[in-house]
Design a protein around this nucleic acid. Structure first.
Lengths: 200, 200
DNA sequence: ACCTGAACACCGTTCAAGT
DNA sequence: ACCTGAACACCGTTCAAGT
Protein backbone atom coordinates (compact mmCIF):
# COMPACT_ATOMS: atom_id res chain seq x y z
CA UNK A 1 0.00 0.00 0.00
CA UNK A 2 2.87 2.36 0.70
CA UNK A 3 4.06 3.52 -2.70
CA UNK A 4 6.09 6.51 -1.52
CA UNK A 5 9.15 6.31 0.74
CA UNK A 6 8.03 7.65 4.13
CA UNK A 7 9.95 10.92 3.70
CA UNK A 8 8.04 11.54 0.45
CA UNK A 9 11.13 12.34 -1.50
CA UNK A 10 9.79 15.47 -3.23
CA UNK A 11 6.10 16.32 -3.26
CA UNK A 12 5.72 18.02 -6.62
CA UNK A 13 4.82 21.69 -6.42
CA UNK A 14 1.66 23.43 -7.59
CA UNK A 15 1.23 27.07 -8.61
CA UNK A 16 -0.22 27.75 -5.15
CA UNK A 17 3.10 26.78 -3.54
CA UNK A 18 4.90 29.47 -5.51
CA UNK A 19 2.22 31.98 -4.51
CA UNK A 20 2.65 31.09 -0.82
CA UNK A 21 6.42 31.48 -1.11
CA UNK A 22 5.90 34.83 -2.83
CA UNK A 23 3.58 36.03 -0.02
CA UNK A 24 6.26 35.15 2.54
CA UNK A 25 8.92 36.89 0.44
CA UNK A 26 6.88 40.11 0.22
CA UNK A 27 6.52 40.25 4.01
CA UNK A 28 10.28 39.87 4.42
CA UNK A 29 11.70 41.88 1.55
CA UNK A 30 8.92 43.65 -0.30
CA UNK A 31 7.79 43.13 -3.89
CA UNK A 32 11.38 43.04 -5.14
CA UNK A 33 11.90 39.86 -3.13
CA UNK A 34 9.47 38.07 -5.42
CA UNK A 35 12.29 36.84 -7.64
CA UNK A 36 12.24 33.53 -9.45
CA UNK A 37 15.73 32.31 -8.61
CA UNK A 38 15.64 33.00 -4.86
CA UNK A 39 12.16 31.48 -4.60
CA UNK A 40 13.33 28.41 -6.50
CA UNK A 41 16.22 28.07 -4.05
CA UNK A 42 13.82 28.35 -1.12
CA UNK A 43 11.51 25.74 -2.63
CA UNK A 44 14.47 23.54 -3.55
CA UNK A 45 13.67 23.21 -7.23
CA UNK A 46 15.41 24.55 -10.32
CA UNK A 47 14.24 27.95 -11.51
CA UNK A 48 13.37 26.34 -14.82
CA UNK A 49 10.51 24.52 -13.10
CA UNK A 50 8.90 27.86 -12.28
CA UNK A 51 8.07 28.32 -15.94
CA UNK A 52 5.90 25.27 -16.02
CA UNK A 53 3.52 26.97 -13.54
CA UNK A 54 3.68 30.57 -14.72
CA UNK A 55 4.51 32.22 -18.03
CA UNK A 56 6.76 34.77 -16.27
CA UNK A 57 7.48 36.64 -13.06
CA UNK A 58 4.67 39.16 -13.58
CA UNK A 59 2.13 36.31 -13.71
CA UNK A 60 3.34 35.15 -10.30
CA UNK A 61 3.11 38.69 -8.95
CA UNK A 62 -0.44 39.01 -10.29
CA UNK A 63 -1.51 35.66 -8.82
CA UNK A 64 0.09 36.57 -5.50
CA UNK A 65 -1.75 39.89 -5.35
CA UNK A 66 -5.04 38.11 -6.11
CA UNK A 67 -4.43 35.68 -3.27
CA UNK A 68 -3.49 38.57 -0.97
CA UNK A 69 -6.72 40.39 -1.79
CA UNK A 70 -8.80 37.31 -1.03
CA UNK A 71 -6.95 36.09 2.04
CA UNK A 72 -6.31 39.42 3.75
CA UNK A 73 -9.59 41.20 3.15
CA UNK A 74 -12.67 39.05 2.78
CA UNK A 75 -11.46 36.18 4.96
CA UNK A 76 -10.77 38.24 8.14
CA UNK A 77 -14.04 40.08 7.62
CA UNK A 78 -15.96 36.81 7.36
CA UNK A 79 -14.19 35.53 10.45
CA UNK A 80 -15.61 38.30 12.66
CA UNK A 81 -19.07 38.34 11.06
CA UNK A 82 -20.44 36.23 13.91
CA UNK A 83 -19.57 38.93 16.46
CA UNK A 84 -22.81 40.84 16.95
CA UNK A 85 -21.59 43.87 18.89
CA UNK A 86 -19.81 46.28 16.54
CA UNK A 87 -17.36 47.42 19.23
CA UNK A 88 -16.40 43.82 19.93
CA UNK A 89 -16.13 43.20 16.19
CA UNK A 90 -13.73 46.11 15.80
CA UNK A 91 -11.69 44.90 18.76
CA UNK A 92 -11.48 41.37 17.36
CA UNK A 93 -10.50 42.55 13.90
CA UNK A 94 -7.89 44.99 15.18
CA UNK A 95 -6.40 42.50 17.62
CA UNK A 96 -6.08 39.94 14.83
CA UNK A 97 -4.53 42.49 12.47
CA UNK A 98 -1.91 43.62 14.97
CA UNK A 99 -1.15 40.09 16.13
CA UNK A 100 -0.24 39.06 12.59
CA UNK A 101 3.22 40.59 12.15
CA UNK A 102 3.81 38.91 8.82
CA UNK A 103 0.51 40.18 7.48
CA UNK A 104 1.17 43.70 8.71
CA UNK A 105 4.66 43.84 7.24
CA UNK A 106 3.30 42.54 3.94
CA UNK A 107 0.53 45.17 3.90
CA UNK A 108 3.09 47.93 4.53
CA UNK A 109 5.42 46.58 1.86
CA UNK A 110 2.63 46.55 -0.72
CA UNK A 111 1.51 50.06 0.25
CA UNK A 112 5.10 51.16 -0.45
CA UNK A 113 4.78 49.71 -3.97
CA UNK A 114 1.58 51.65 -4.64
CA UNK A 115 2.91 52.91 -7.97
CA UNK A 116 3.64 49.44 -9.37
CA UNK A 117 1.21 48.84 -12.25
CA UNK A 118 0.13 45.40 -10.99
CA UNK A 119 -0.16 46.52 -7.38
CA UNK A 120 -2.04 49.78 -7.97
CA UNK A 121 -5.55 48.47 -8.77
CA UNK A 122 -5.48 45.68 -6.17
CA UNK A 123 -4.20 47.99 -3.45
CA UNK A 124 -6.90 50.50 -4.32
CA UNK A 125 -9.65 47.89 -3.97
CA UNK A 126 -8.26 46.44 -0.76
CA UNK A 127 -7.87 49.86 0.86
CA UNK A 128 -11.36 50.95 -0.13
CA UNK A 129 -12.91 47.70 1.09
CA UNK A 130 -11.15 47.80 4.46
CA UNK A 131 -11.95 51.47 5.06
CA UNK A 132 -15.60 50.94 4.09
CA UNK A 133 -15.90 47.95 6.41
CA UNK A 134 -14.37 49.86 9.33
CA UNK A 135 -16.52 52.90 8.68
CA UNK A 136 -19.66 50.72 8.62
CA UNK A 137 -18.77 49.28 12.02
CA UNK A 138 -18.21 52.75 13.45
CA UNK A 139 -21.52 53.87 11.99
CA UNK A 140 -23.22 50.93 13.68
CA UNK A 141 -21.70 52.16 16.92
CA UNK A 142 -23.62 55.39 16.48
CA UNK A 143 -21.03 57.61 14.79
CA UNK A 144 -22.39 59.99 12.17
CA UNK A 145 -21.24 59.10 8.63
CA UNK A 146 -18.38 61.60 8.41
CA UNK A 147 -17.07 60.81 11.87
CA UNK A 148 -17.19 57.09 11.13
CA UNK A 149 -15.09 57.58 8.01
CA UNK A 150 -12.59 59.74 9.90
CA UNK A 151 -12.20 57.14 12.63
CA UNK A 152 -11.84 54.33 10.09
CA UNK A 153 -9.10 56.24 8.27
CA UNK A 154 -7.32 57.00 11.51
CA UNK A 155 -7.32 53.43 12.73
CA UNK A 156 -6.30 52.08 9.35
CA UNK A 157 -3.47 54.54 8.76
CA UNK A 158 -2.22 53.97 12.29
CA UNK A 159 -2.09 50.24 11.52
CA UNK A 160 -0.26 50.80 8.25
CA UNK A 161 2.04 53.41 9.76
CA UNK A 162 3.03 51.15 12.60
CA UNK A 163 4.05 48.32 10.30
CA UNK A 164 5.86 50.78 8.08
CA UNK A 165 7.85 51.75 11.14
CA UNK A 166 8.44 48.10 11.96
CA UNK A 167 9.72 47.52 8.43
CA UNK A 168 12.24 50.30 8.94
CA UNK A 169 13.43 49.19 12.38
CA UNK A 170 13.44 45.45 11.79
CA UNK A 171 11.61 42.88 13.93
CA UNK A 172 13.37 44.07 17.11
CA UNK A 173 11.73 47.48 16.78
CA UNK A 174 8.71 46.46 18.84
CA UNK A 175 8.03 43.65 21.30
CA UNK A 176 4.84 41.61 21.16
CA UNK A 177 3.66 43.36 24.33
CA UNK A 178 4.27 46.81 22.84
CA UNK A 179 2.41 45.77 19.71
CA UNK A 180 -0.60 44.68 21.77
CA UNK A 181 -0.45 47.87 23.86
CA UNK A 182 -0.44 50.00 20.71
CA UNK A 183 -3.54 48.22 19.42
CA UNK A 184 -5.25 48.57 22.81
CA UNK A 185 -4.53 52.31 23.05
CA UNK A 186 -5.85 52.78 19.53
CA UNK A 187 -9.06 50.95 20.33
CA UNK A 188 -9.55 52.72 23.65
CA UNK A 189 -9.22 56.05 21.90
CA UNK A 190 -11.62 55.35 19.06
CA UNK A 191 -13.94 52.46 19.72
CA UNK A 192 -16.22 53.62 22.52
CA UNK A 193 -19.64 54.47 21.17
CA UNK A 194 -20.17 58.22 20.78
CA UNK A 195 -21.66 59.90 23.82
CA UNK A 196 -25.42 59.86 23.41
CA UNK A 197 -25.44 57.18 20.75
CA UNK A 198 -28.65 55.14 20.73
CA UNK A 199 -28.52 51.39 21.34
CA UNK A 200 -30.62 49.60 18.75
CA UNK B 1 46.98 76.22 -30.85
CA UNK B 2 44.33 73.67 -31.66
CA UNK B 3 45.36 70.53 -29.83
CA UNK B 4 42.05 68.70 -30.10
CA UNK B 5 40.32 67.70 -33.36
CA UNK B 6 37.34 70.05 -33.78
CA UNK B 7 34.81 67.34 -32.92
CA UNK B 8 36.65 66.81 -29.59
CA UNK B 9 36.75 63.11 -30.01
CA UNK B 10 35.61 62.26 -26.48
CA UNK B 11 35.65 64.83 -23.70
CA UNK B 12 36.49 62.67 -20.71
CA UNK B 13 33.74 62.42 -18.14
CA UNK B 14 33.71 63.62 -14.55
CA UNK B 15 31.65 62.27 -11.66
CA UNK B 16 29.24 65.19 -12.15
CA UNK B 17 28.38 63.90 -15.64
CA UNK B 18 27.23 60.60 -14.18
CA UNK B 19 25.18 62.48 -11.58
CA UNK B 20 23.48 64.54 -14.29
CA UNK B 21 22.68 61.42 -16.28
CA UNK B 22 21.29 59.83 -13.11
CA UNK B 23 19.04 62.85 -12.44
CA UNK B 24 17.64 62.59 -15.96
CA UNK B 25 17.14 58.84 -15.53
CA UNK B 26 15.18 59.31 -12.28
CA UNK B 27 12.79 61.74 -13.94
CA UNK B 28 12.15 59.25 -16.74
CA UNK B 29 12.14 55.92 -14.99
CA UNK B 30 12.46 56.41 -11.23
CA UNK B 31 15.29 55.30 -8.97
CA UNK B 32 15.47 51.89 -10.63
CA UNK B 33 16.55 53.61 -13.83
CA UNK B 34 19.79 54.65 -12.15
CA UNK B 35 21.58 51.58 -13.48
CA UNK B 36 25.24 51.53 -14.41
CA UNK B 37 25.01 49.75 -17.73
CA UNK B 38 22.16 51.79 -19.24
CA UNK B 39 23.80 55.05 -18.06
CA UNK B 40 27.11 53.96 -19.57
CA UNK B 41 25.32 53.28 -22.86
CA UNK B 42 23.71 56.72 -22.72
CA UNK B 43 27.07 58.38 -22.00
CA UNK B 44 28.76 56.24 -24.64
CA UNK B 45 31.46 54.79 -22.42
CA UNK B 46 32.03 51.28 -21.12
CA UNK B 47 30.41 50.44 -17.82
CA UNK B 48 33.86 49.66 -16.46
CA UNK B 49 34.69 53.36 -16.60
CA UNK B 50 31.92 54.09 -14.10
CA UNK B 51 34.01 52.45 -11.39
CA UNK B 52 36.77 54.97 -11.77
CA UNK B 53 34.38 57.71 -10.57
CA UNK B 54 32.34 55.82 -7.99
CA UNK B 55 33.00 52.77 -5.82
CA UNK B 56 29.56 51.33 -6.68
CA UNK B 57 26.00 52.11 -7.73
CA UNK B 58 24.91 53.19 -4.24
CA UNK B 59 27.61 55.88 -4.22
CA UNK B 60 26.16 57.30 -7.43
CA UNK B 61 22.67 57.21 -5.95
CA UNK B 62 23.91 59.02 -2.83
CA UNK B 63 25.75 61.69 -4.86
CA UNK B 64 22.69 62.15 -7.07
CA UNK B 65 20.40 62.64 -4.07
CA UNK B 66 22.82 65.23 -2.62
CA UNK B 67 22.80 67.13 -5.89
CA UNK B 68 19.00 66.89 -6.02
CA UNK B 69 18.69 68.32 -2.51
CA UNK B 70 20.94 71.25 -3.37
CA UNK B 71 19.61 72.02 -6.83
CA UNK B 72 15.89 71.53 -6.21
CA UNK B 73 15.48 73.13 -2.80
CA UNK B 74 17.91 75.89 -1.92
CA UNK B 75 18.50 77.07 -5.47
CA UNK B 76 14.83 77.80 -6.35
CA UNK B 77 14.33 79.43 -2.96
CA UNK B 78 17.30 81.73 -3.51
CA UNK B 79 16.03 82.57 -6.96
CA UNK B 80 12.80 84.09 -5.59
CA UNK B 81 14.38 85.78 -2.58
CA UNK B 82 14.43 89.11 -4.43
CA UNK B 83 10.63 89.12 -4.72
CA UNK B 84 9.45 91.29 -1.82
CA UNK B 85 5.73 90.56 -1.85
CA UNK B 86 5.06 87.11 -0.36
CA UNK B 87 2.06 86.48 -2.63
CA UNK B 88 4.19 87.26 -5.68
CA UNK B 89 6.94 85.08 -4.27
CA UNK B 90 4.58 82.14 -3.89
CA UNK B 91 3.27 82.68 -7.41
CA UNK B 92 6.78 82.78 -8.86
CA UNK B 93 7.88 79.66 -7.00
CA UNK B 94 4.75 77.70 -7.90
CA UNK B 95 4.85 78.74 -11.54
CA UNK B 96 8.48 77.65 -11.78
CA UNK B 97 7.76 74.34 -10.06
CA UNK B 98 4.85 73.48 -12.36
CA UNK B 99 6.70 74.63 -15.46
CA UNK B 100 9.52 72.19 -14.81
CA UNK B 101 8.01 68.86 -15.87
CA UNK B 102 11.27 67.00 -15.50
CA UNK B 103 11.75 68.33 -11.97
CA UNK B 104 8.19 67.48 -10.99
CA UNK B 105 8.38 63.94 -12.35
CA UNK B 106 11.66 63.45 -10.53
CA UNK B 107 10.19 64.71 -7.26
CA UNK B 108 7.24 62.34 -7.61
CA UNK B 109 9.52 59.42 -8.46
CA UNK B 110 11.66 60.04 -5.38
CA UNK B 111 8.58 60.39 -3.17
CA UNK B 112 7.54 56.94 -4.42
CA UNK B 113 10.90 55.57 -3.22
CA UNK B 114 10.42 57.02 0.26
CA UNK B 115 11.29 53.70 1.88
CA UNK B 116 14.66 53.36 0.14
CA UNK B 117 17.37 53.70 2.83
CA UNK B 118 19.39 56.27 0.87
CA UNK B 119 16.35 58.26 -0.19
CA UNK B 120 14.57 58.37 3.18
CA UNK B 121 16.71 60.95 5.06
CA UNK B 122 17.20 63.24 2.05
CA UNK B 123 13.52 63.17 1.16
CA UNK B 124 12.61 63.95 4.76
CA UNK B 125 14.89 67.01 4.81
CA UNK B 126 13.73 68.26 1.42
CA UNK B 127 10.06 67.89 2.31
CA UNK B 128 10.47 69.62 5.67
CA UNK B 129 12.45 72.49 4.13
CA UNK B 130 9.94 73.08 1.34
CA UNK B 131 6.92 72.93 3.64
CA UNK B 132 8.57 75.28 6.14
CA UNK B 133 9.43 77.74 3.40
CA UNK B 134 5.89 77.71 2.02
CA UNK B 135 4.39 78.05 5.49
CA UNK B 136 6.63 81.05 6.22
CA UNK B 137 5.43 82.79 3.08
CA UNK B 138 1.80 82.14 3.99
CA UNK B 139 2.45 83.46 7.49
CA UNK B 140 3.94 86.62 5.97
CA UNK B 141 0.69 86.97 4.03
CA UNK B 142 -1.12 87.20 7.34
CA UNK B 143 -2.22 83.59 7.88
CA UNK B 144 -2.13 82.38 11.47
CA UNK B 145 0.54 79.73 12.06
CA UNK B 146 -1.71 76.65 11.83
CA UNK B 147 -3.53 77.94 8.76
CA UNK B 148 -0.22 78.72 7.07
CA UNK B 149 1.00 75.18 7.63
CA UNK B 150 -2.26 73.74 6.33
CA UNK B 151 -2.07 75.82 3.17
CA UNK B 152 1.57 74.90 2.64
CA UNK B 153 0.78 71.22 2.95
CA UNK B 154 -2.15 71.51 0.59
CA UNK B 155 -0.20 73.31 -2.10
CA UNK B 156 2.75 70.98 -1.78
CA UNK B 157 0.75 67.76 -1.83
CA UNK B 158 -1.24 69.04 -4.78
CA UNK B 159 2.04 69.61 -6.62
CA UNK B 160 3.33 66.15 -5.76
CA UNK B 161 -0.02 64.52 -6.48
CA UNK B 162 -0.24 66.11 -9.89
CA UNK B 163 3.16 64.83 -10.97
CA UNK B 164 2.36 61.43 -9.54
CA UNK B 165 -0.66 61.42 -11.80
CA UNK B 166 1.49 62.56 -14.73
CA UNK B 167 3.92 59.71 -14.05
CA UNK B 168 1.04 57.28 -14.29
CA UNK B 169 -0.50 58.72 -17.46
CA UNK B 170 2.70 59.49 -19.32
CA UNK B 171 3.64 62.88 -20.78
CA UNK B 172 0.45 63.04 -22.85
CA UNK B 173 -1.66 63.09 -19.68
CA UNK B 174 -1.63 66.86 -19.43
CA UNK B 175 -0.91 69.67 -21.88
CA UNK B 176 1.29 72.61 -20.97
CA UNK B 177 -1.81 74.80 -20.86
CA UNK B 178 -3.60 72.43 -18.49
CA UNK B 179 -0.53 72.34 -16.28
CA UNK B 180 -0.45 76.14 -16.08
CA UNK B 181 -4.21 76.28 -15.42
CA UNK B 182 -3.85 73.78 -12.55
CA UNK B 183 -1.14 75.92 -10.94
CA UNK B 184 -3.22 79.07 -11.43
CA UNK B 185 -6.33 77.53 -9.84
CA UNK B 186 -4.25 76.34 -6.93
CA UNK B 187 -2.79 79.79 -6.36
CA UNK B 188 -6.14 81.55 -6.77
CA UNK B 189 -7.61 79.28 -4.12
CA UNK B 190 -4.86 79.64 -1.56
CA UNK B 191 -2.70 82.68 -2.11
CA UNK B 192 -4.95 85.67 -1.43
CA UNK B 193 -4.11 87.26 1.91
CA UNK B 194 -6.62 86.34 4.64
CA UNK B 195 -9.48 88.76 4.99
CA UNK B 196 -8.55 91.34 7.62
CA UNK B 197 -4.80 90.57 7.56
CA UNK B 198 -2.71 93.56 8.54
CA UNK B 199 -0.13 94.97 6.13
CA UNK B 200 3.17 95.52 7.90
C1' DA C 1 2.20 16.62 -14.97
C1' DC C 2 6.17 18.45 -13.20
C1' DC C 3 11.08 18.93 -13.36
C1' DT C 4 16.26 19.44 -14.87
C1' DG C 5 20.15 21.52 -17.18
C1' DA C 6 22.12 24.22 -20.36
C1' DA C 7 21.80 28.32 -22.79
C1' DC C 8 21.26 33.35 -23.49
C1' DA C 9 20.34 38.30 -22.20
C1' DC C 10 20.93 41.79 -18.73
C1' DC C 11 23.11 44.34 -14.89
C1' DG C 12 26.56 44.97 -10.88
C1' DT C 13 31.33 44.59 -9.82
C1' DT C 14 36.43 43.70 -10.28
C1' DC C 15 40.72 44.31 -12.30
C1' DA C 16 44.69 44.16 -15.36
C1' DA C 17 46.03 46.65 -19.10
C1' DG C 18 45.83 50.65 -22.11
C1' DT C 19 46.34 56.03 -23.37
C1' DA D 1 43.44 60.82 -15.01
C1' DC D 2 40.20 58.32 -17.35
C1' DC D 3 38.96 54.37 -20.07
C1' DT D 4 38.56 49.43 -22.23
C1' DG D 5 37.69 44.53 -22.25
C1' DA D 6 37.27 40.40 -20.24
C1' DA D 7 35.73 38.01 -16.40
C1' DC D 8 32.44 36.55 -12.80
C1' DA D 9 28.03 36.57 -10.02
C1' DC D 10 23.11 37.14 -10.19
C1' DC D 11 18.39 36.96 -12.08
C1' DG D 12 14.77 36.47 -15.95
C1' DT D 13 13.51 33.54 -19.68
C1' DT D 14 13.52 29.65 -23.13
C1' DC D 15 13.52 25.05 -24.36
C1' DA D 16 14.81 20.28 -25.32
C1' DA D 17 15.01 16.38 -22.73
C1' DG D 18 13.93 13.61 -18.70
C1' DT D 19 10.55 10.92 -15.23
Amino acid sequence: MVRQPKTRSRPRLAAADWVQAALAAIAEGGLAAVAVEPLARRLEVSKGSFYWHFPNRDALVAATLEEWERAETERPIERVRVVGDPAERLRALTAAAFADRTGGLRDAALAASADHPLVQPVLRRVTARRLAYLADAFAELGCPEADARRRALLVYTAYLGLFHYLRATGPAGLTEAELRAYARDLLDAFVQPRRGAKRS
